[in-house]
Design a protein around this nucleic acid. Structure first.
Lengths: 343, 343
DNA sequence: AAAAAAAATACAAACGTTTGTATTATCGTT
DNA sequence: AACGATAATACAAACGTTTGTATTTTTTTT
């Protein structure tokens, strides 16, 4: 056997049964236009011959691939994986597959990936813009060509023509900081991420708003915007920050779980007691917080649900008969504060 | 504009330039058969008209999709994500995309996913079998139909006709346990995963082999095979285990990072000092171990490299002119022990 | 039993490429 | 200026489906 097995195709079944290809195609589709007895014969023969439909040919003919393109800024962040799981679950239940790509935090790669999606491999796109993505011309462009699109997380500028799935970052962090204030904390530190990222901007706004609301002065010294894009450096950055503080805060609001953990780790090393001396809150709640001692109080972000919702919106768009009369939706999912040992 | 924009195709360019479709196709391919001046014109017009090739049509015509199907048991395990990153990187550099699916730890879903891959959407498959996968008839079947395949991790039974990428689990765990023994540890506990999973079986063998080698008796009581497939339950299972021990071990060899962390967490809660009273080693080393206090000594598994290697092997298979004379390869990647504070 | 209606099936174009072969244009040679 | 050689291009089939329309077969009606 030194040859590649030729695949069985509709034609082979048709020939064997002395019917037309069209009939075979319709029979397998359970189209009522073919006689039940014929359908039966076709089914049996197809099984017997080991027929397997050719997805590519189907797609070319029907103009649908039943694939959803998903573009995330990076793989190694549990949040995005969790969103993908959500997308995958919903998509799978509706007969779609997902093709995940990473823009590796780069605007250029984002554009590159979108171009590749534009080549007709996907029916629609779910995307989380990178922090580098300042303008959305490339997205508008794609949408105007008729590509259905849903955005989630970190939406700096709204894109007319795309659905959006987000949380209210400002509100969520306001609530978290308010929670700390009500515990009697007065010197609250802020650990944020890269300033360019919309979600971090909003979380910062919520932080400031809460302090303002409760007449607590803002100490510039207690604020850190992490710039690192890689785990190893974040570690160092946070360590440095706490080492060079002239006073110790009595609480820390961290913009991600990971920052929260790194904060706790640093504080514990310098002998601080958590939560007695310093309370810590993280953001995200993707399992990491429960492993640590003490466990980390978190703003719980419904990541899986965000994915499900995004998939739902996209598939709805795909099913609209006239794409143009779709009323674009903005969905804001609720967050909640999950209290654990660190506060 | 209530209509879907029709895509520009080769025919449109051809008509505009008064040349044939074939010429346009070849021009865009930079085929030397077309005159440089014509190629120039075609390129310009293509750009002007916003031509975007149709990947589906290309695939149907050429018989190649340039997509690699990846099937992993679950998304929410950093190991698999890391392998996927490795695959993705290599694949991308060689003009392939990856389509990831999860078999959700189920043999049935594994088969289902493979059938969907068989529909011609992917050129080849990289797969990590589930723990439920006892026989590999479905894999052999697919391979005999000409589907290139590479297996990684948890290979219970070798599949002739597929390449394999693995680590030597037994050797790695032997080394880890030996390390503990040489530190003077005598009562070493073992925290493994589901017994059906080949990797856990091998890690257990390595553990036993090390004890035997150094004439240390095996205490059944100190051995736990976690059965939980979900994080929440693992937690409880490990807590229970340590609570019901009549004696405390002086070291723990855990078969995953997560088990290692949970172990440390449990021990710390009961007031044990790590590493003075109990040393702990984990397995995997995917970043989690560095967050904890104390940091976790780990067997470092080259996950990213496993992915890269798997992709390399698969793409090599895809490029072989005659698929049948490919000498199937088994690659064993090296592990190493990364010493941190927990030992 | 013939005509009309309905059911079942066949034909053929279309989806947008690639690619082998045939044809036409261009060039150098004499 | 005619010829052959070569370069450039055109034609058409193929990839494996789907689907609108035409045709044939069967059933119903009178």
């Amino acid at each position: 056997m030194g040859f590649k097995k030729r695949r069985v195709k509709l034609e082979d079944i048709a020939r064997k049964l002395n019917v037309s290809i069209a009939t075979v195609s319709r029979a397998l589709d359970e189209n009522p236009r073919v006689k039940p007895s014929t359908r039966e014969k076709v089914f049996n023969t197809a099984k017997l011959m080991g027929y397997m439909p050719n997805q590519i040919a189907k797609s070319l003919s029907s103009g649908k691939t039943n694939i959803i393109g998903v573009l995330i800024p990076r793989y190694d962040e549990p949040f995005f994986i969790e969103v993908c799981r959500g997308i995958d679950q919903y998509a799978r239940n509706h007969n779609y597959k997902i093709l995940i790509s990473s823009s590796r935090n780069s605007y250029e790669f984002e554009k590159e990936n979108l171009i590749s999606f534009e080549r007709g491999l996907v029916d629609g796109i779910i995307l989380s813009p990178t922090h580098e993505t300042e303008n959305v011309a490339h997205l508008n462009d794609l949408i105007s060509k008729g590509m259905p699109m849903v955005l989630f997380d970190n939406i700096r500028e709204q894109v007319s023509g795309a659905d959006h799935v987000m949380i209210d970052d400002k509100k969520a962090s306001f609530a978290a900081v308010e929670f700390l204030i009500k515990k009697g904390k007065k010197k609250i530190a802020f650990i944020g991420g890269i300033k360019e990222k919309k979600v971090f901007q909003d979380r910062y706004k919520g932080f400031i708003a809460a302090l303002t609301e409760y007449d607590i002065p803002v100490h510039k010294e207690l604020i850190l915007h992490c710039n690192s894009l890689h785990r190893e450096f974040e570690d160092k950055e946070i360590l440095d920050f706490f080492q060079h503080l002239s006073t110790t805060p009595d609480a820390v609001f961290a913009c991600t779980d990971n920052y929260g953990l790194l904060t706790m780790k640093t504080l514990l090393k310098t002998g601080k007691k958590i939560p007695e001396e310093v309370a810590v809150i993280g953001f995200g709640d993707l399992g990491l917080g429960e492993v640590f001692v003490p466990t980390l109080t978190c703003v719980s972000q419904p990541s899986f649900e965000m994915g499900q919702k995004a998939a739902e919106l996209l598939i709805n768009q795909l099913n609209e008969p006239d794409e143009m009369d779709h009323k674009k939706t903005i969905v804001r999912l609720e967050t909640q504060l999950t209290e654990r040992e660190s506060t």
